[in-house]
């Protein structure tokens, strides 16, 4: 039944025309008279589907096309090519019935009225979404409790801290209890405690309403805490779609072996066990091929004066970095030397 899959994206492309300018005054004058345009492929032939109740993390460096994909799904941008379907609507038609069921939260943009207390914006949204009074009160009470909003409701927005403002932004965006949430860097600029709170809240909302959520974030902790599944995008292309743990296994064919020696080494021999990433005093970290980990550990124990040894998955940040390095290398090999933005 197609209705059960809330998000379907097929061969989605979004190209921007960007006018190019040489640096400096002369460049500016030239581009004022005659503009050169170039197509930037922000999203290039991306396909995926997301099931109801899933939380999916979008990963990718700045300018990879994550936000553009989100914006196409939220109906803000017209796709250049391909199909996007959300809740069986075509987002770019921006039907009211569609917009009622989704929400978009952006860490970098705010919808709260700056000079007024957040409550005023909530009331405006209640009217816009035609939320019945009793439901509005109930939802607001729930959100107030989950996010500890009570002391903030009557302060002017301009007097709130960044974290407090983000909590109110989330509230404003969720009053109508959307089924599909697009969260674009909702934790940007927040301190660790606040990040954790927002994360817990997103998880709670997902569990309570079985909402489908797409999350982009630069903080891997957000993604590892919330998403089982990730979609990795780079230069508009989909690089990986699947389980977060499996990504580590697929991309990072290594494990991290940490060793502590009981006495200083003679300075030799460590390289033969694996790639040395760190060596400080009597501690070292090595990358060892996944299949060989136990062999290598055994050999090290036999041949080196070892006090302690641990074997771990490499940090997910490193895995992701590796994904992008591989992609860049692949592009270079294909000879795609066209000047990229950023």
């Amino acid at each position: 039944m197609p209705g059960s899959i809330p998000i379907r994206v097929q061969n989605l492309c979004k190209y921007y025309q960007v006018h190019q300018k040489e640096p400096g005054l002369v460049g500016s004058l030239k581009s004022f008279v005659k503009r050169k345009y170039a197509d930037v492929k922000a999203v290039d032939d991306v396909s995926f589907t997301i099931d109801a109740g899933e939380i999916v993390g979008f990963l990718g460096p700045n300018g990879a096309g994550k936000t553009t994909t989100l914006k196409v799904l939220a109906g803000l941008l017209y796709p250049t090519n391909g199909v996007a379907r959300v809740l069986d609507f075509t987002p770019s038609e921006r039907r009211a019935a569609f917009l009622r069921q989704i929400t978009l939260v952006m860490g970098q943009k705010q919808q709260l009225a700056w000079d007024l207390p957040p409550m005023e914006t909530f009331l405006v949204n209640a009217a816009i979404y035609e939320i019945p009074d009793d439901q509005f009160k109930k939802t607001l009470a729930e959100l107030t409790e989950l996010l500890e909003l009570a002391p903030l409701l009557k302060k002017q927005v301009r007097k709130l801290s960044l974290g407090e403002r983000m909590k109110c932004e989330l509230t404003a965006a969720l009053l109508h209890r959307p089924k599909v949430l697009f969260l674009d860097e909702p934790t940007i600029g927040l301190d660790v405690t606040m990040q954790t709170k927002i994360r817990q809240f997103v998880a709670e909302y997902n569990a309570r309403y079985r909402a489908t959520i797409i999350l982009t974030s630069h903080y891997m902790a957000d993604v590892t805490a919330l998403c089982q599944r990730v979609i990795v995008i780079d230069h508009g292309k989909l690089l990986y779609d699947g389980d977060l743990k499996a990504l580590a296994e697929k991309i990072a064919p290594h494990k991290l072996v940490r060793v502590e020696f009981s006495q200083a080494l003679d300075g030799q021999r460590l390289e033969e066990f694996g790639e040395v990433v760190k060596m400080r005093g009597q501690r070292a970290e090595l990358l060892v091929p996944r299949d060989a980990t136990s062999d290598v550990a055994a050999r090290m124990l036999a041949q080196l004066p070892i006090a302690d040894v641990t074997i771990e998955e490499p940090p997910i940040e490193d895995v992701i970095t590796r994904v992008f390095e591989q992609a860049a290398r692949a592009r270079a090999e294909r000879g795609e030397a066209e000047e990229e933005e950023e």
Binding site: G75, L99, K109, I128, Y129
Partner: peptide, 15 residues
């Protein structure tokens, strides 16, 4: 200019 027009367009009311 600053992109907050997004919030107008994602509301179920005539933009």
């Amino acid at each position: 200019r600053d992109g907050t027009f997004d919030f107008v367009l994602t509301k179920p009311v005539n933009a």
